[in-house]
């Protein structure tokens, strides 16, 4: 999607180094770990699955039953799915109202870990919500907190810390190993954060258009002025989209749209005609088709390079 220029390498190289270093850390925690000793860890999204796997490695068995291509935030388990969650040793929740199905099931509180509990004071509100009034209750609104917390790497570190503490509580005798794994992951997330920060600092006031309102923590972390739409990548271009874009861009110089996933080619060319380039920054909420969380984030950073480097060509 984005042409790679030699100048990208100054960003890609450190990312690759971090990834290589990360791969080096991933050594078996215990050669003697057998299937019956595995700690069963149920998670509600892929970032938490990745954190748990990186920290627990071969001592954990990850249960993440959301099918590929489904947004875990809106997935709803059946009875068997809920029962599987109930029987896990640890249930890792994202918190911040993520995965509304959690409000409709019974889970044992003692096994449940809200990984954003420690960052509750840093949670953001969604910009929009449906407000309605009926009966004697009066006006009320649905949908409050923004939930894609892990897109701020510093918050992701705190969530990973919660995962590390939860796993350690269950297998305290392996604390040192888990601590090593967590600190390695922390380093990788910190490096990623530093890279994005450096990239955004090249054009700090640049307004970006986001196809979906899920980047609140990302934009807040790096101070990116954001305009949010509610478009899907597979949405076929129509006149309404052009009007929405016109309306939202009015009075700004926004020239880049960030998508959750690859948009349709027609949408890309229509946007280009209107002076808006497209690129992808995947929230990586579900298991990626290829690579892992850090590799997807590396690709996201690469995709952002032309956005913040005015000399680079367009798509």
């Amino acid at each position: 999607m984005i042409p790679i220029d030699m100048r990208h390498y100054r960003f890609i190289l450190p990312v690759l180094l971090v990834l290589i270093a990360g791969c080096g850390q991933k050594q078996p925690a215990s050669e003697t770990a057998s299937q019956d000793q595995l700690l069963s860890v149920a998670v509600v999204n892929y970032p938490l699955a990745f954190f748990a796997e990186r920290i627990g490695q071969d001592l954990v068995d990850i249960l993440f039953p959301v099918p590929g291509g489904t947004d875990p935030a809106y997935w709803v388990p059946d009875k068997q799915g809920v029962t599987a969650f109930q029987s896990a040793d640890i249930i890792l929740l994202n918190g911040a109202g993520y995965a509304e199905w959690l409000n409709t099931v019974s889970l044992p509180g003692s096994k449940t870990v809200n990984t954003s509990q420690s960052i509750s004071s840093r949670l953001l509100m969604e910009a929009e919500g449906v407000t309605h009034s009926h009966g004697l209750e009066g006006e009320h609104e649905h949908g409050n907190l923004a939930f894609t917390t892990w897109l701020d790497p510093r918050l992701a570190i705190e969530q990973a810390r919660s995962v590390y503490e939860a796993i350690t509580r269950e297998i305290p005798e392996r604390e040192a190993i888990f601590a090593d794994h967590f600190h390695a992951l922390e380093q990788e997330l910190m490096s990623m954060d530093a890279m994005i920060e450096e990239l955004v600092s090249r054009d700090p006031g640049k307004t970006l258009i986001f196809s979906h309102p899920v980047y609140q923590y990302f934009t807040a972390r790096y101070g990116i002025p954001a305009l949010n739409l509610h478009w899907e990548p597979d949405q076929v271009w129509d006149g309404q989209m052009a009007r929405e874009l016109e309306q939202i861009r009015h009075g700004t110089d926004a020239a880049w749209m960030i998508w959750e996933d690859e948009p349709l080619p027609e949408t890309v060319s229509r946007l280009r005609e209107l002076g808006v380039e497209s690129t992808v920054f995947s929230p990586c909420a579900n298991t990626p088709d290829a690579g892992d969380y850090l590799e997807v984030m590396k690709q996201n950073i690469e995709n952002l390079v032309p956005v913040y480097d005015p000399d680079l060509g367009t798509r």
Partner: peptide, 15 residues
Amino acid sequence: DNIIANASVAEYNRV
């Protein structure tokens, strides 16, 4: 995004 409804909206008494 603001919807005001009257009391005729059926509330469910069973999940």
